[in-house]
Design a protein around this nucleic acid. Structure first.
Lengths: 156, 156
DNA sequence: GCGCTATAATAGTCAAAGATGGTCAAAATA
DNA sequence: TATTTTGACCATCTTTGACTATTATAGCGC
């Protein structure tokens, strides 16, 4: 019953709850959780990626640090373009979920809408051989993204 | 010997009697019943499918789990059952749109949500040879339907 | 004091091992 | 024959550790 990664994720998000960024020592944090330092990198890579709306800055050596910055929502028009590009012709479920969470964080979609996005792109919905799944997911998700932004504009 | 699958089904439903969802370890449950882990998947597939009004979420790896979510039996639940049956294993776009319009008329979904349902099930989204399209649309749409009713309940 | 180097103090990368759950078809059973 | 049960093999997620890269600072010769 590890969930070490989840605990670390929560801990970091707790630290960030007030601010848009947080700075920490990788080794200290690892020691605090009694794990290998590289575990921290794993959490950052899987939970604080750009797709999740975060930027990581760091510095090695004496006085080194890791800084986690929550990105501001870009202008919505640009964001749509960027996301469509990001999705491309094929995308896995994890990345889609990260993007959906980002949209939710930026309050571009409601929680109900986010859940619909997930329902349509999850592995249960797309009952296909694995190879085709990501391609299909990309197609479905792009359609939904366009709709999300159309809705956000109050358009037709 | 009573059917193992039936016993497992009862056991899971017992666990869910209080709540709308339950989370379990596949291997633990299998061990509890002294059966192969894949037996659990069989039970989930045959007794807790979308057609039965359940959603399955899961995660592999350390800290993995299987979560089973169900619809509470309510008036709306009857509508959901009816709709799931109506959708069946295959459905065309026109019929889906009619159902979505119905959900909108009943104010079960907002206009934005309706537009997402359409975006995920429209012909643009499901880029596939024509033969498979309706089948896939049915799978995607059923998943979304369950989600819609889950949302309507203000559930998990 | 200045510049150089060695050392210590950080953080990053990657691949292997561990921990789950998923799939599918053959075997068993009703 | 249809359903159930199992097992071999697969996919995914997490955790760790050995090895690498970078930076600050102390110490040294001048």
């Amino acid at each position: 019953m590890a969930q070490l990664s989840d605990a670390i994720e929560r801990f970091i998000k707790e630290l960030m709850s007030e601010d848009q960024h947080v700075e920490l020592r990788r080794n200290e944090l690892a020691q605090h959780f009694g794990c290998a330092p590289s575990q921290i990198n794993y959490v950052l890579a899987t939970r604080f990626s750009v797709d999740h709306g975060y930027l990581i800055e760091s510095r090695r050596g004496g006085g080194g640090y890791v800084r986690i910055v929550r990105m501001r929502a870009r202008q919505e028009g640009n964001l749509l373009d960027a996301l469509i590009k990001r999705v491309g012709n094929s995308i896995d479920e994890e990345t889609v979920n990260a993007i959906i969470q980002h949209l939710r964080d930026c309050e571009i979609v409601t929680e109900n809408e986010a859940s619909l996005l997930r329902a349509a792109t999850g592995r249960n919905a797309l009952a296909l051989p694995v190879s085709g799944k990501d391609v299909l997911r990309a197609a479905v998700f792009k359609n939904m993204l366009i709709q999300v932004f159309r809705n956000a504009e109050g358009g037709v």
